[in-house]
Design a protein around this nucleic acid. Structure first.
Length: 306
DNA sequence: CTGGATGCCTGGGAGC
DNA sequence: TGCTCCCAGGCATCCA
């Protein structure tokens, strides 16, 4: 499930494409191109254009051509961008770009929750991204309070709302709320400013650590060169329902919230009150992976140190 | 206007 | 072994 850290890792692994010209672009499944507007598919796919920038806001990636045209890529939950794997195409490959260097980029997405959106200008891209909240890596407390502080929603629902902040999905919402010591079902309008401050700091830290670890690979996610990430080894609550909390040893619980499975520690995240690990002397220990922990592929990995 | 519910889609795992 | 069922979840859209 690509969230901000996975998309940011992809962006970084795609930088070798900068400056290259798209010689040919194929759309194998036309229905993944959203809002095709008036121009033809090859033009919408930047055929003939030279890549001048690859930008990201939240979970959205944009390929920007010298013409000013932009192609926004959303990976949904199973989308992948792969470099240099031209033919034969893996299954569920929906779009392929060929570059004048001989490189190829392909978009595959088995579950097809992702898609491409063609935009005619940089202004159109700016306008589109203006509807998103601030990027999660830079989220600040006042922005969170302004955008969600008066809402009666559960705080987790607000964190998943891309117009509140961009880039957080189910995994990092659970992880951030655990680190902040805030119960996921707590109502936004009942959180005190200091709780929002802990949440903002936790989001920035959790996302930054996950970017350092090159994203979470639970099953599908790979970067553009096909390499898995290691951030799943940092997860403290996500996917750990029924297991002991790595901090207090009490059992991690799960509940449905905003139509998502939500994992939390009832002791570390009390409904009212504050039990945050931010700023505590043991904070480094909270982020450390226990001995013997293995990643999704089953490969043993040593503790992460920050 | 706000916020909850639904549907889209497929692979993989559980259960029988 | 092979079948069915259900779950994963980002996002648009609909509805109360």
């Amino acid at each position: 499930m690509p969230e901000l850290p996975e998309v940011e890792t992809l962006r970084r692994t795609l930088t070798p494409l900068l400056g290259l010209r798209v010689t040919r672009a194929h759309l194998l499944r036309p229905d993944i191109l959203l809002s095709p507007s008036t121009h033809t598919a090859p033009t919408a796919m930047l055929q003939g254009d030279r890549l001048t920038a690859i930008d990201r806001r939240g979970k959205q990636l944009a390929l920007i051509g010298a013409s000013g045209r932009a192609l926004v890529i959303q990976l949904g939950m199973s989308g992948q961008l792969l470099l240099g794997a031209d033919s034969p195409h893996p299954s569920h490959t929906h779009a392929v770009w060929h570059f004048d260097s001989g490189a190829a980029l392909l978009f595959r997405d088995p579950r097809r929750f992702g898609g491409l959106t063609s935009l005619p200008s940089l202004d159109a891209l700016i306008a589109r991204w203006h509807t998103l909240g601030p990027d999660g890596l830079n989220i600040r407390t006042p922005e969170l309070i302004v955008r969600a502080g008066a809402s009666r929603r559960a705080v987790k629902a607000a964190l998943l709302d891309q117009s509140v902040l961009a880039g957080v999905g189910n995994i990092y919402a659970d992880e951030s709320l655990f680190l902040a010591g805030v119960h996921p079902a707590a109502r936004c309008d009942r959180l005190k400013p200091e709780a929002w401050a802990r949440i903002a700091e936790a989001i920035r830290l959790v996302l930054a650590r996950a970017v350092e670890a090159r994203g979470s690979t639970l099953r599908d996610y790979r970067d553009a060169s096909g390499a898995p990430g290691a951030a799943q080894n940092l997860h403290r609550v996500y996917g750990r329902a029924g297991l002991p909390c790595l901090t207090c040893t009490r059992i991690i619980r799960s509940m449905m919230l905003a139509q998502r499975t939500t994992c939390f520690c009832p002791h570390c995240q009390p409904v009212r009150g504050k039990r945050s690990f931010l700023g505590a002397p043991s904070f480094a220990a909270v982020l450390r992976v226990p001995r013997g922990h293995t990643d999704a592929a089953g490969t043993p990995s040593g503790p992460f140190r920050f």
